[in-house]
Design a protein around this nucleic acid. Structure first.
Lengths: 189, 189
DNA sequence: TTGACATGTTATCAGTCGATAACTACCTTG
DNA sequence: CAAGGTAGTTATCGACTGATAACATGTCAA
């Protein structure tokens, strides 16, 4: 029989994973701690006790998402330490839409000082990591992050990524011009 | 004596303006219809009756913000129909942070099908307008929107715009490299 | 003036939410 | 086995929210 009780650390990780999924759908205020609790199969008061409050759970989820992106970037840079490599890695992150949408909810929720502080720190860390891994200058890093933000927004709007909405012409145009710079050989060549 | 009663249309406009401000701070679920009502100086049930529900009020606010951006772009294109001109206009929109943050909340809330549909329509309309006004190709328009999304996120995070947080090094770097392409002469030259 | 419509309010409700308190069950260590 | 810490639950609460209903007030045309 499987273990019936987990350590607090294990349960915490499980809850953060559930929080990423739940908060990505409905945002900070729109998601109840009970939503997260049920997704992880525990009771709602236990979530509160483990994290000390809803806000801390949300911030933990945002930081988890940011850490995941950092990890993906590090892996990509290990293969090839340039912006193209990281860009390709970010494209693959579109498959994990929850991460990106959660971050977007975090950005939008920055009016709350505590959340804003945490979110800015995550963003700054990613910016510095991109420059450090690729040696890009400020302008190059800025363009890279700009593309990333557009992809993040499009993914959250379900214009890109798995389970995307039926494409309108403008969506196809936008998606088609993505990573033109990555120089895929023309189809049928 | 000033009129004590407004027409429904006038009150509606007033409420949409209040909704933009209120929803920008706390998002769709985090803002109560009573918040909006008090900001506009009317009772909460009246807001519901005028708009039919909270969701319709939110969508009206998002569409208002998008329409404002379209208007700013049209004005800019009338002066000079190129992307630099529109980019400069968008920079000035940073002063109206509410608009951009509200849109960001809208993007993030796209998991709701009704809101998602409205938000995607606004985004598509802006994309088409940019191409139409400037004659930009898909790739140019994409880069323009990407920069816009980064600016929107930075403004929402209070990294840019009025009342921004005390700048960290990475913020100064990101802000400093913005619109390098707009070719300001080097300082002290 | 009067009546009818449009503008707006107060009262109220059923549902939801985050958080606390108190209790229970499990597991390890001596 | 006993005991104490760890993991987890149920019960409950006060506050808040969106929406409805009923009522009140201002405005304009005939």
């Amino acid at each position: 029989m499987t273990r019936t009780r987990l350590t607090a650390a294990e349960r915490g990780e499980q809850l953060v994973a559930a929080a990423v999924k739940a908060f990505a759908v409905s945002g900070y205020t729109g998601t109840s701690t009970d939503d997260v609790a049920r997704l992880a199969g525990v009771s709602q008061p236990y979530v509160i006790r483990l994290f000390g409050g809803k806000q801390r759970l949300f911030i933990a989820a945002v930081e988890h998402a940011a850490a995941r992106i950092e990890q993906v970037f590090r892996d990509a840079a290990e293969r090839s330490p340039d912006l193209d490599s990281l860009g390709q890695a970010y494209d693959e992150l579109l498959a994990e839409r929850d991460l990106l949408t959660l971050l977007l909810h975090g950005f939008a929720a920055s009016a709350d000082p505590t959340i804003g502080g945490a979110v800015r720190e995550c963003f700054g860390r990613i910016y510095r990591l991109v420059r450090e891994l690729t040696g890009a200058d400020a302008e190059e890093a800025r363009d890279f992050l700009a593309s990333g933000m557009l992809l993040t927004v499009l993914a959250s709007m379900q214009v890109l990524g798995p389970g995307a909405v039926p494409p309108e012409p403008w969506m196809a145009e936008l998606a088609g011009s993505i990573h033109k710079s990555c120089a895929e050989p023309e189809p049928g060549g």
